[in-house]
Design a protein around this nucleic acid. Structure first.
Length: 285
DNA sequence: GGCCAGGCCTTTG
DNA sequence: CAAAGGCATGGC
């Protein structure tokens, strides 16, 4: 089994990275992780400083996990106070993964008003129904269906995947993307604000979903998605006060995200992930 | 068996 | 412009 060697200068924590809620297609299987990335079924596990993997070559693994990024420098830049410091210490090695833009778009459209286990369920359903089968030593998995594979379906077919009212959004997105090849390059070349506006033109994509896509698929690291968890954390530790404890209004969203970009800097998105991971871990206990 | 979930869209005040 | 209601579904 090939391996990549990690170090204090190049930290990485596979468990934190795969379990922090940014990805939906990895599962633990007796000590290892198995996941679908593009058309590859990948198995990986970590033994101390060794990242062991199968199913893809080393270049692809390094690119996927963004191991070339100087994580210590990024973490130093967001380490602004004791609270974030503790979150960083508890999850050091968590990295943002380079996700496929199309899959990420659909995943986070589905993520609205859904729990993480339910999101995983919706995505697995779509893959099983409409994605190419991918035989592997760890069983047959399915690739996430491309936009063409979904655009040719009817609303009813997507509803069968438990998407609920999100089915229409996904179908719209599929048809829109099919009629606009090159959207990835175009969005990727835009500034954060412009790219965000472009993504919010998709039905079912608001601030939060757009920010997730920009952070996870377009490496716009200043993006700071504000969900109910992050809102809670920010209220308790950074921006006390605010309106009713229900949803996140546009104004509050902009206030929180704006503050975070000023406060944490150009890698605010990394701060967001560490805060999110820490909040979720705290709830489990 | 409620409650809540990595919200968004539409309508109303 | 801000605030509230509706929304499909499943896990806990």
């Amino acid at each position: 089994m090939p391996a990549i060697t990690l170090s204090a200068a190049r930290p990485f924590d596979l468990d934190c990275t795969l379990d922090c809620g940014q990805l939906f297609r990895w599962q633990r299987r007796d000590g290892a992780w198995v996941g679908v990335v593009g058309d590859a079924v990948i198995a990986a596990r970590q033994e101390g400083p060794a990242l062991l993997f199968e199913g893809a070559d080393e270049r692809r693994i390094e690119r996927y996990f963004q191991l070339d990024l100087d994580l210590p420098a990024i973490l130093a830049s967001i380490d602004r106070d004791p609270f974030i410091h503790a979150a960083i210490a508890r999850h050091r090695g968590l990295r943002l993964v380079r996700q496929d833009p199309w899959e990420c778009l659909v995943s986070y459209i589905c993520a609205q008003n859904a729990s993480i286990p339910f999101i995983r369920c919706m995505i697995e359903n779509m893959a099983r129904c409409f994605g190419a089968p991918l035989p592997s030593p760890w069983g047959t998995h399915h690739a996430f269906p491309g936009p063409e594979a979904l655009a040719s379906r009817e609303l009813f077919d997507l509803r069968q995947c438990s998407l609920g009212y999100r089915a229409g959004y996904v179908l719209d997105a599929a048809r829109r993307v099919c009629g606009d090849p090159g959207w990835v390059e175009r969005v990727g070349a835009l500034s954060f604000e412009e790219a965000r506006a472009e993504l919010m033109a998709f039905r079912g994509v608001g601030r939060k979903v757009a920010d997730c896509i920009l952070l996870f698929a377009f490496q716009k690291f200043e993006s700071f998605p504000v969900d109910v968890w992050i809102r809670r954390v920010m209220r308790e530790h950074y921006l006390p006060g605010g309106g009713p404890d229900r949803g996140v209004s546009c104004r509050e969203y902009d206030a929180i995200a704006g503050f975070a970009r000023d406060y944490f800097g150009e890698y605010a998105g990394y701060a967001q992930e560490y805060l999110f991971a820490d909040a979720r871990a705290a709830r489990k206990k």
